[in-house]
Measured scan of single mutants.
Amino acid sequence: ETIMEVNLLKGPKGLGFSIAGGIGNQHIPGDNSIYITKIIEGGAAQKDGRLQIGDRLLAVNNTNLQDVRHEEAVASLKNTSDMVYLKVAKP
């Protein structure tokens, strides 16, 4: 597993990826991690090219996303300014 830091500039459609996982909404049984499950065509993440489906999202800005509820992860992604710092684990 490789840890990678990505600074992503939000586009008109936001960050351009979808997530799944978290406490109460496990993407993988027994694993509370938050995973990237979709990269949106023409979105910021696709244009940047570094994020991939299956990457594990560890942090957004200063918010640690390990062992959080799905709703908390979504809220932390929404409550960001235009430049967003992401910390991901690549499988």
Rank of each mutant, 00 (worst) to 15 (best):
Asp82Phe: 03
Gly43Val: 01
Lys13Ser: 06
Lys38Trp: 11
Arg56Trp: 03
Asp31Phe: 03
Lys47Tyr: 15
Gly21Asn: 03
Gly43Lys: 04
Ile34Asp: 00
Gly11Leu: 05
Arg50Glu: 09
Val88Gly: 01
Lys38Gln: 12
Gln26Leu: 10
Glu41Ala: 11
Lys87Trp: 02
Asp82Met: 08
Thr2Ala: 06
Met83Leu: 09
Ser76Ile: 07
Gly43Ala: 10
Asn64Tyr: 06
Ala89Gln: 03
Tyr35Val: 10
Ala75Ile: 09
Lys87Thr: 04
Asn64Ser: 07
Asn7Phe: 10
Leu86Thr: 02
Phe17Met: 08
Thr37Gly: 05
Asn25Ser: 13
Tyr85His: 15
Ile53Ala: 11
Ile23Leu: 10
Asp55His: 09
Ile19Gly: 01
Ala20Leu: 09
Gln66Ala: 05
Gly14Arg: 03
Asn32Trp: 04
Val68Thr: 08
Lys78Cys: 07
Pro29Leu: 10
Asp55Val: 06
Asp55Tyr: 13
Ala89Thr: 06
Asn32Leu: 03
Val68Leu: 12
Ala45His: 01
Arg56Pro: 01
Ala89Leu: 10
Gly42Asp: 12
Asn32Phe: 04
Ile53Arg: 07
Gly21Leu: 02
Lys38Ile: 04
Ala20Cys: 10
Gly54Ile: 00
Ser81Glu: 09
Leu58Thr: 14
Glu71Pro: 09
Ala44His: 13
Gly49Asn: 09
Val6Gln: 02
Asp48Glu: 15
Leu65Val: 09
Asn61Pro: 00
Ser76Met: 13
Gly49Asp: 11
Gly22Met: 02
Glu1Met: 09
Glu41Val: 11
Ser33Arg: 08
Leu8Met: 06
Leu15Lys: 01
Asp55Glu: 04
Glu1Pro: 03
Ala45Trp: 00
Leu58Phe: 12
Asn62Ile: 03
Leu58Asn: 03
Ala45Arg: 00
Pro12Cys: 06
Gly24His: 13
Glu72Ile: 09
Glu71Asn: 08
Tyr85Leu: 12
Leu9Ile: 10
Ile40Glu: 14
Gly14Asn: 04
Asn61Asp: 14
Ile39Lys: 02
Asn62Leu: 09
Asn79Ala: 14
Asn79Gln: 10
Lys78Gly: 13
Leu86Met: 14
Ile53Pro: 10
Gly14Thr: 04
Gly21Trp: 02
Gln52Phe: 05
Ser33Gln: 06
Glu72His: 11
Asn25Cys: 14
Ser81Lys: 12
Ile39Asp: 01
Ala20Pro: 00
Ala44Ser: 12
Arg69Phe: 04
Asn7Pro: 07
Ile23Glu: 05
Thr2Gln: 04
Gly24Leu: 10
Ile40Arg: 12
Lys13Cys: 04
Lys90Leu: 03
Asp67Trp: 11
Ile34Thr: 03
Asn7Ala: 06
Gly49Thr: 04
Ala75His: 10
Leu8Ile: 12
Gly11Glu: 14
Asp67Tyr: 10
Lys38Asp: 15
Ser81Cys: 05
Asn62Glu: 09
Val74Pro: 02
Leu65Ala: 02
Gly24Gln: 13
Asn61Thr: 03
Ile28Asp: 10
Leu15Asn: 02
Gly11Gln: 08
Leu57Asp: 00
Leu65Met: 09
Ile3His: 08
Leu9Gly: 09
Gln66Glu: 04
Asn61Ala: 05
Val74Phe: 15
Leu8His: 01
Asp67Arg: 10
Pro12Trp: 08
Val6Arg: 02
His27Ser: 12
Phe17Trp: 01
Ser76Asn: 04
Gln66Val: 06
Leu51Glu: 00
His27Asp: 09
Asp31Ile: 04
Ala20Asn: 11
Asp31Cys: 10
Glu71Cys: 10
Asp31Pro: 02
Gly43Ile: 00
Ala20Met: 10
Thr80Arg: 05
Met4Gln: 07
Arg69Pro: 09
Gly21Thr: 03
Gln52Gly: 12
Ile28Ala: 07
Ile3Leu: 06
Ile23His: 10
Thr2Gly: 12
Asn61Gly: 14
Asp67Lys: 03
Ala73Thr: 03
Leu57Tyr: 00
Arg50Pro: 01
Thr63Met: 08
Gly21Glu: 03
Gly43Cys: 10
Gln46Gly: 15
Asn79Met: 13
Ser76Lys: 14
Ala45Leu: 04
Leu51Gly: 00
Val6Asn: 01
Pro91Ser: 12
Arg56Asp: 00
Gly54Met: 09
Glu72Met: 07
Ala75Cys: 10
Gly49Trp: 02
Gln46Ile: 04
Met83Asp: 14
Ile36His: 00
Lys47Ile: 14
